[in-house]
Design a protein around this nucleic acid. Sequence first.
DNA 1: GAATACTTGACCATTCTACTCGGGAACTCT
DNA 2: AGAGTTCCCGAGTAGAATGGTCAAGTATTC
Lengths: 170, 170
Amino acid sequence: MRLSTKGRYAVMAMADLAGNATDAQIPGDPKPVALADIAARQDISLSYLEQLFAKLRRGGLVTSVRGPGGGYRLSRPSGELRIADIILAVDEPIAATRCKTGSTKGCTKTGARCVTHDLWEELGQQIHVFLSSVSLADVVERRVLGRAKPCNDLGNELSAEMAGEIAAAE
Amino acid sequence: MRLSTKGRYAVMAMADLAGNATDAQIPGDPKPVALADIAARQDISLSYLEQLFAKLRRGGLVTSVRGPGGGYRLSRPSGELRIADIILAVDEPIAATRCKTGSTKGCTKTGARCVTHDLWEELGQQIHVFLSSVSLADVVERRVLGRAKPCNDLGNELSAEMAGEIAAAE
DNA sequence: GAATACTTGACCATTCTACTCGGGAACTCT
DNA sequence: AGAGTTCCCGAGTAGAATGGTCAAGTATTC
């Protein structure tokens, strides 16, 4: 999973859309949100937003309405839209520097799987699981803080001293 | 926390160093590993490795020995070196596109904290906690797989159906 | 003192980001 | 009908970051 500012902008815009929709639950919601409004509120260039929303629309996350009074609407209620989906829609999955994505293709020149392969694979999983556990509604309602937990049910060598360091870091 | 290929290369090199050291536990270990060897094994350019190890040395993760037979040595046993430390040493913490890093400085033009601020903060924490729970020894001994767990002890709206989707994804 | 190996700094090609621009197509009003 | 509003799409682009190379050192050992 790629993590760039493009993805961040997309989530910002989607959060804005979710927060400023009159009521996304009703299918015949009469008021889509115009990109120009989002651009003004979030201070993102309109043309750039258009690019992002083109991808979001292709990804089935939003629907569009053209003409005066038109704009964008969430395809589903915000509680059902996961952050991971938004980021995957706009950030095409990068080939993670050797280690061909996904499969167990060789990453060293000898064709073997490199030592760190599992680590990046696992980190990607970790990020994906986290971002899949957060919905757009969670972000809008600011119910995100405090979710990061060590959660090592299998043997971790995190001593008490080290855990303290982590808490103090940054 | 930044996640670039630079960090990946650094972890690869450190794993190589840990795996090819005669015995890093003994203080007076007579055989440091030369960068040229690591470069050959990992297929990374020597000059690039030099840059990485300069930062790793400044970060106190490795010690260097000059002259013939010289090279680099882990500063501590590999079980005590966390992956997070390696990445932090080589990848200077980026300013996360508005949202000034760390503090609660305003990220919108009005100076308020943006809606998505908490999300990125929390994601950063999640990544940091994960990478801090993995030691260099874990990577070398390939004891990494299966650590990514949903771990949502507080209310998550992940339905059974969605959890299935996640498992199937990618 | 010669060989080895780390140290430093300048430099460079390529890629990515975050846009802009220009035109077009659908739609709704008057 | 036509004018204005909005989405749609493709090409282009300045600037920064990535991932390196190259050259000239300095320290250490044999």
